[in-house]
Nucleic acid binder design. Structure first.
Lengths: 149, 149
DNA sequence: GATGAAATTGAATTTCAATTTCAATATTGA
DNA sequence: TCAATATTGAAATTGAAATTCAATTTCATC
């Protein structure tokens, strides 16, 4: 379980492993990813309603700091979190109709960005690539709808 | 001047061309781009302090709707605007040290995203690619600083 | 140029997520 | 166990974005 890594990392930082943090960690790590705070809090509250919103907020911030979570901001401006264990680097396809977020990895993209950076004498820290549009499912639904009318 | 296109577009939409809008448009179109509302408002206020923050806010929203401005949200979450006339499509290199935003265009990237979308049976509307890191200037400064100490 | 319906303005307010405060409580090492 | 220190969670605060509404302006028509 991630709990061990969590305990190690947390004591390395001189912080304390609490019931709440472990509970939030477990729920979060087994969650589907790309959730906003309200969604994560809702999951936590279902299991332990005594844990406050603030604690969930601070724990996600902590997990991000510890490298166990990744914070994402897509075009809608909401802050979302995903467990950091999922394939170290990937980008996203985002459906504008249903909000579905699909992850993808592309080695060519990584190579390409190196070239772009080199041309501008820019030292890369990280990048972000998002493709917005319509997912297969929504596209199919649209076609169906058109046919019916 | 863009004012003519603005007047055309605005009457097409059944809206009205006002002094404030024209003034904001002129200031914005000749600005350096990638500014947030507060920065644009500050520029406007310097020239005409009677124009309210709200009007600047609504005018930028309007210009975006008319296709004369583009709204951008980078990782810091701030909403920025750039005149839409600048090369129709481009992406950004963002310096984490000085905040500089460099635009780039890359045809290979466009081709690449088409492939990614096709593999996921995804219909592209648009994309966003940002590379974060350190610009040449800041990198040089860092090296200098290190040498001195 | 005058008129009035409709749109716009701008100060103030509201919204809402993100963040901070602070007193009560829990954790950890000695 | 104890004390030092960190954490919790309700409530308050912040700040950008968005809305409200009375006063004002625009513009097509006369």
């Amino acid at each position: 379980m991630e709990t061990d890594l969590f305990k190690t990392r947390i004591s390395e930082e001189g912080l304390k492993a609490t019931k709440q943090r472990e509970e939030i960690l477990n729920i979060f790590m087994t969650s589907s990813g790309h959730q906003n705070l309200a969604q994560i809090y809702a999951q936590v509250a279902k299991i332990n309603p005594k844990i406050g919103y603030t604690t969930v907020y601070r724990t996600l911030k902590l997990l991000t700091h510890l490298g166990l979570a990744t914070q994402r901001k897509f075009a809608d401006g909401e802050t979302r979190y995903e467990p950091a264990s999922e394939g170290s680097h990937h980008d996203h396809l985002i459906c504008l109709d249903c909000g579905k977020i699909i992850e993808f990895e592309d080695q060519t993209l990584e190579t390409l960005q190196n070239g772009i950076a080199r041309r501008h004498r820019f030292k890369i820290s990280h990048h972000r690539m998002e493709i917005y549009g319509c997912c297969e499912e929504c596209h199919r639904k649209k076609r169906m709808g058109r046919r019916k009318s």
